[in-house]
Design a protein around this nucleic acid. Structure first.
Length: 487
RNA sequence: GGUCCCUUCGUCUAGCGGUUAGGACACAGCCCUUUCACGGCUGCGGCAGGGGUUCGAGUCCCCUAGGGACUACCA
């Protein structure tokens, strides 16, 4: 494939939807795969709904995912501007050209008139297609409308009896009949372009070679092709990728839970997992791999391997994947990722080495970063729950439980700081095991409880290693004092 | 309504005329084990339905059903 230019063109009317992120990802992947350029374009022609805020939100979400763009609103490029609201003069120019060539015309119909026309068509069982009544207005009629103060729109004159054929890179051949397409609007009364016009002008003038977008645009494609033909412009390749659905099979929306990339970030998903999961929604590397590093995805990504049918977003599987990534990514990276999630009012993590030890241990039980607070309670004196419940009393109703803990405290005290490691810690317990003939649960449960006040939780050695010698000793001594009341 | 697209375990998917229809998540059971988790193993479970074509069809064709998109001066 020669140098390709692909784009992602969101409208800034809200957050970055997870489906949009997937579309962006597929475009980005293709650009990376074939050494092409990935362009970000803001489609803000809806003056009512577009906001700068959501533009920011979208930029942030894309950056978080690592979907960096070669050309776009923030960094510019040779084919800008990259915001449609800043390109109005371009659309007007092309629209006028089309009018001059009699390929487009001014239409003075009001919404009311059009609604009525549509209603009549439907009543007669005909297709609700614009009649083309303003195609050939006389200059008298035009003057009359102008005098009334009516503002025209510019409509494209859709050719009659034309078969529109194209080959979709993911769907194959698709065919449409031009008679079913009404003369659609190019320029609205406010002077802003309509979607179908703006995309074509932009994709054309930005030299886009591959248009990869959601399935919902498949039926827009014939209109756009007609426009390309009218402009005598080269038609790009199209690839329509399936939508993402919620668990009930309908289009993924808020009522299915989190749908914005931001929310996933906030919930503690890590970007590597999200990107990996998203890439597998509608695409498959044809192997049995599931956890695939991004470099490898780039290497394998092909449009022809994109599936045609929609995929249901499965949060459970995303969570599984996230836990896989949390367990396997570089520990320093994980520490960095986790820091923003730590409740600083509860946990003092100024001791970086200590926090790193904690993360090493809790990377297994947590599935999202937000879980850290729940898993960290054992390691801090101010958060551990020191309630002595019946279960604990039961365990320490046996004299041997005291023997274990008391003796371990003594041995631990004798381990020099520079020999404080898992091996020596195990050795110490082994000695007690042999000396007092205590083993299994009788041996470990008292230890676990003395360190955590819980009968389930982190392993004994994990606790000792993470806490370190002093903290461990203090913890166990305190516990003995507390439990001795019930002796 | 019309046009177009889609249809393999509950979910994500592999399959591209000859397979005991493979993998992953979830679920169940077992194992590992000082608890929980992790991990390992086993199991459960699928070609939407009906017609063709063919020696042979998940795979090709047609019909039906279901789902989706478009049919806007929204993108």
């Amino acid at each position: 494939m020669k140098e390709c230019r692909v784009r992602f063109a969101p409208s800034p009317t809200g957050y970055l939807h997870i489906g949009g992120a997937r579309t962006a990802l597929f475009n980005w992947l293709l650009a990376k795969r074939y050494n092409g350029k990935f362009i970000l374009r803001i489609e803000d022609t809806d003056q009512e709904r577009s906001t700068k805020d959501s533009e920011e939100v979208i930029f942030r979400a894309m950056k978080w995912l690592g979907l960096d763009w070669d050309e776009g609103p923030l960094n510019g490029g040779d084919f800008g501007p990259y915001r449609q609201s800043e390109r109005l003069y371009i659309y007007r120019e092309y629209a006028q050209k089309l009018v001059a060539q009699k390929k487009a015309f001014k239409c003075y119909c009001t919404n009311e008139e059009l609604d009525e026309e549509r209603k009549k068509c439907l009543e007669q069982g005909k297709d609700a297609v614009y009649s083309g009544r303003c195609r050939n207005l006389s200059s008298d009629e035009v003057q009359k409308f102008e005098k009334e103060g009516r503002k025209p729109v510019i409509r494209f004159e859709v050719p009659k009896d034309k078969q529109i054929l194209f080959t979709d890179l993911s769907r194959g051949d698709v065919k449409f009949d031009s008679n079913l397409i009404g003369d659609f609007v190019l320029l609205k009364t406010d002077g802003f372009p309509s979607y179908n016009f703006a995309v074509v002008i932009d994709d054309y003038s930005m030299k886009i070679t591959h248009v990869i977008r959601g399935d919902d645009h498949l039926t827009n494609t014939p209109k756009q092709i007609l426009l390309y033909e009218a402009l005598k412009a080269k038609i790009p390749e199209f690839a329509h990728i399936p939508m993402i659905l919620g668990n009930d099979g309908s289009r993924l929306s808020k009522r299915h839970g989190a749908t914005s990339v931001e929310e996933y970030q906030k919930d503690g998903f890590i970007k590597e997992a999200v990107v990996n999961y998203l890439s597998l929604l509608g695409w498959s590397p044809k192997s049995n791999e599931e956890i695939i590093p991004i470099e490898s995805i780039i290497e394998k990504f092909e449009l022809k391997d994109v599936s045609k049918s929609p995929a249901v977003f499965d949060n459970t599987k995303l969570r599984w994947m996230n836990s896989q990534y949390i367990q396997s990514i570089d520990i320093d990276k994980l520490v960095d990722y986790a820091i923003p999630f730590v409740d600083k009012k509860l946990y003092d993590i100024s001791d970086k080495a200590f926090f790193k030890r904690i993360m090493t241990v809790i990377s297994e039980p947590i599935t999202v970063l937000a879980d850290v607070n729940k898993e960290m309670v054992y390691y801090f004196d101010n958060t551990i729950d020191k309630t002595i419940d019946e279960e604990i009393k039961e365990i320490f109703s046996k004299e041997s439980a005291f023997t274990v803990v008391e003796n371990y405290i003594e041995r631990l005290g004798n381990i020099p700081e520079n020999d404080y490691n898992e091996e020596s810690l195990k050795q110490a317990l082994r000695t007690i095991q042999n000396e007092f003939k205590i083993k299994g649960k009788e041996l470990f449960m008292p230890m676990r409880v003395a360190l955590t006040y819980k009968t389930s939780g982190p392993g004994v050695y994990e606790m000792l290693i993470v806490l370190g010698k002093e903290r461990s000793l203090k913890r166990m001594k305190e516990f003995l004092e507390a439990i001795s009341v019930y002796k």
